[in-house]
Design a protein around this nucleic acid. Sequence first.
DNA 1: ACCGACGTTGTAGCGTCACTTCATGGACGT
DNA 2: ACGTCCATGAAGTGACGCTACAACGTCGGT
Lengths: 312, 312
Amino acid sequence: MDVRALETLRTVRSQGGVGAAAAVLHLTPSAVSQQLAALSREAGVALTERVGRGLRLTAAGDALADAAVDVAVAVGRARAACASFLGRPEGTVRVSAFQSGAQLLLPPLLTRVRALGGITVECSDEDVAQDDFPALTDRVDVVVAHRPEGSAEWPGSPSRLRVVPLLREPLDVAVPADHPLAGRERVRAGDLVDEQWIAVREGFPVATVLAAVAAGPGTAPRIAHRINDFSVVEAMVAAGHGVSLLPRYTAGRSPGVRLLPLAGVRAGRRVDALLRPDTAERLVVRRVLDELVAVAAEAGGAPVRAASGAGR
Amino acid sequence: MDVRALETLRTVRSQGGVGAAAAVLHLTPSAVSQQLAALSREAGVALTERVGRGLRLTAAGDALADAAVDVAVAVGRARAACASFLGRPEGTVRVSAFQSGAQLLLPPLLTRVRALGGITVECSDEDVAQDDFPALTDRVDVVVAHRPEGSAEWPGSPSRLRVVPLLREPLDVAVPADHPLAGRERVRAGDLVDEQWIAVREGFPVATVLAAVAAGPGTAPRIAHRINDFSVVEAMVAAGHGVSLLPRYTAGRSPGVRLLPLAGVRAGRRVDALLRPDTAERLVVRRVLDELVAVAAEAGGAPVRAASGAGR
DNA sequence: ACCGACGTTGTAGCGTCACTTCATGGACGT
DNA sequence: ACGTCCATGAAGTGACGCTACAACGTCGGT
């Protein structure tokens, strides 16, 4: 009952296949398949069953994968127990974030961590659909993700996923500087009927917010363009090609754009840090996470919550 | 960070040395030493330090060993999760008990377990000093141990040791059938001054009880002989070579001996099942343990506690 | 204070296990 | 019906861990 094999089983479940798991684990599909076979032989029950040209975990496999999470957590605690006897935590932590979050959080995070010394942070930007954020935790230690406010919690929390809230960011309406509404202090949903909207791609975070905000009574918003990168959106808004919903702290730097708070509706997005339960136990990771929480508190106005560490 | 290496570290701590741990794990001392070296290299800190001609765990090693218990428990849960999908639990469980406890409990346990089918129970009798009972859990799955009532709890419970109470057994005074006191319903401590006592060897359970019971005010009991086997004790008592303290349920079968309850003092011993936390998670073990608790409830008069399973 | 003995730590040799490469068998989509 | 993708199996290779043997240090006895 090897921890590596259990880790593999866990990855096959979260990634949804042998091939994808192999890619994440830097192995060949054959090796993954053999580990699963060995594990199944040891357990005495079938852990996977073929469905179509892929496979799926059986009930037994699912139960074992759940237990594997606890094993990984216990091993992580063991590593942390050793690391706490070292002078200060060292090592490298991989952090990923969606674009606008990366722009806001990663630079100050890096400077703060550099001040600590000894810790290397490897950053990457990952732009994925909302459902795909949790799976990123297999490749990256800390995933900075966002979701529309009021939406369902991240799936798998807290048994398979640790969620650390970072900040809440209001969504404002971005209009060109020469727009009739540009001088207003705030706007209401009724003011925005007949506008052309620039939205994010289907399935991406805050895509659902627009439908709630911009729709007149019974009518769907007129979506003219779908752009994911907010700086591109700003350029298009400034050029008068439509209006959009943009997060307050990470957008609106362009001179040709005005951000107008919404009155009447509460529109916002939540920015969370996502971690696998076992990596959340690593001492270095928790150190970096502490800094990330502090950075978010500074950047997002009021601190979200006094979350020290991974919320242990 | 291999589970086997962590298991080895745990064993070195509980057995108090590399050689003893190697014997328990069916390895050579060299292999154990190498595992420790590899673990220490991975942890980055010294896990052991030499003390005299042996060695001792450092603070870091102790912390890691504690964490290793949790890892082993998590792995045990994983195995149990798989086993619960099998039809009925199968496998072999090693049970050991001290003599009188073995005599009382093991035969009915074996018949009950045989009725279940599929489970093999390997019995052994282990007569060790009281302090050595916990270490037996490295070689045996379930250790039936006893201690004087009111004595300190088993060391390491519950973090390193699971304790399941089985029964309480009063200690009576055993006198020859032709003794002046033999006709009495009960005796008091004062009646027993000037008697010659037969005790167990120093350091063995219930050795301390005699000192409290048999001592007159300020005087030590006169211990003529030290015999561990209760049937031998009975034979000597019957032959008039002294009196003794014997457990009520497991002794007194010999016709030449009378057991007299003690009035005024509360003398008894507690019989417990001792398990390692990780083996306590095994499904087969818990099945056998359930039966053992039931057997003890029958044998010891009133049930001690409604302990279902390992007290999870 | 010396000597014997126990127990731990290092080194060489061997076996075993896990991974990669390559080839096969199904299942879906065109 | 064919091509493509995905998972699985078989043989070869590499690395890792264990056993056997030797050396060192430390403690108890004389």
